[in-house]
Simulated scan of single mutants.
Amino acid sequence: MTVMDAALRESLKALQLSDMLETLNARLAQAHGGELGHLDFSLLASRRSISPPAGQSADASPDGDPLWDPPSTDVLDLDWAPFLLERVCELGGLDDVHRNALRQALDGDTAIDLAFLSTHPHAIGPFGPDPAALSATQVARAAELLGHIDFPDLLAALPTDETEAASLIGNGADKIVGGPKKYLLEHFNAMREFYRGASQRQLLVVLWWD
């Protein structure tokens, strides 16, 4: 598959990301050369968000490409929190509906075809599962259900002692400096605000590990 082939063009049009066609080759070269920043969990909004303001030139972008770098508010790096967030919700007895919403917000869905993002030389997620996405409708639902989760209450179900809590959570939680509770609360709140903002703007979300 070439960057400009018809199948890829139609896929990007369906995702409202057709502007990516103009700069995808350059971005791939930058990624291969290690020039792009760390994007573990990225919101690739619609053309409204990745297009530069009127009159902005590539010279205004740190890497020479304003179409690639979304605003900082459109990118969320969850570090290694996803596994730990799910574990806390399990330990806290969160109901299945909200646990599934959390899982989908962290893992995405395979209904939107992003196969071209997993195929050499276009692959963007070398580690973990293939890139996935949530439609604007799914984002809105996830934002609604995440807003219902009382994460401090779930953390309160853990042992008071941070070392004991980390041991119960597992998955490397004992390696978090200062204990896992503050770390996980901050990441959960960031994810909830991220989805709330995407929902308000009716954007889709693309997720991947790198």
Rank of each mutant, 00 (worst) to 15 (best):
A190R: 14
Y195V: 04
Q104F: 00
R87W: 05
D77Q: 08
S199V: 05
V139A: 06
N100A: 15
L39K: 04
F194V: 07
D113Q: 05
D130M: 08
R103G: 10
G197R: 13
L43P: 00
A156S: 13
D107V: 02
L155I: 15
S49V: 12
D79Q: 12
L114M: 01
E162Y: 00
S49G: 12
A26V: 12
T110S: 13
L76K: 03
E186A: 12
K175Y: 11
G37E: 14
D113M: 03
E22C: 03
L106A: 09
P62V: 09
D113K: 09
L207R: 15
E86N: 08
A101H: 05
D69K: 06
P71H: 12
L102F: 09
L12D: 11
F194A: 11
G197T: 09
L36V: 15
R27N: 08
T73K: 07
L78Y: 08
M1I: 04
Q16S: 11
E162S: 12
K181E: 10
W68G: 00
G92T: 05
S18H: 14
M20S: 03
A115F: 01
W80Q: 12
A7I: 11
L21F: 05
D210W: 05
D5L: 08
V75G: 02
E164N: 00
L203Q: 13
L203S: 02
D40K: 01
F41T: 14
L145P: 01
Q30I: 00
A7N: 04
S135D: 13
S167G: 11
A111L: 13
P71Y: 00
H148I: 00
S49R: 07
Q56I: 13
T163D: 14
L67K: 05
P121V: 07
L203E: 15
G197Y: 00
A105D: 06
Q104V: 13
L203C: 02
Q16I: 02
P70T: 10
A165Y: 04
F188N: 05
Q138E: 15
S46N: 12
S167V: 10
L44V: 14
W80N: 13
L28N: 07
L8Y: 01
R99Y: 04
M191R: 08
P82H: 06
D174H: 10
A157I: 00
Y195M: 10
L21Y: 05
L146I: 09
H148K: 15
I124M: 06
A165V: 10
W68A: 04
A198V: 05
E162M: 08
S61E: 08
S57W: 01
A198L: 11
L44F: 13
G37S: 12
L44S: 08
L168I: 12
R47S: 14
L185Y: 01
A58Y: 03
R99I: 03
E186I: 03
I124Q: 05
H120R: 08
R47Y: 05
T110N: 09
F188W: 13
D95G: 09
L114F: 00
F83S: 15
A173E: 14
L145V: 03
Y195E: 06
F127H: 14
M1R: 09
R47M: 04
D174S: 14
T73R: 10
H122A: 14
T2N: 13
L21I: 13
P62Q: 07
L8D: 03
A143S: 15
Y195W: 07
A198T: 04
R87T: 15
D19C: 02
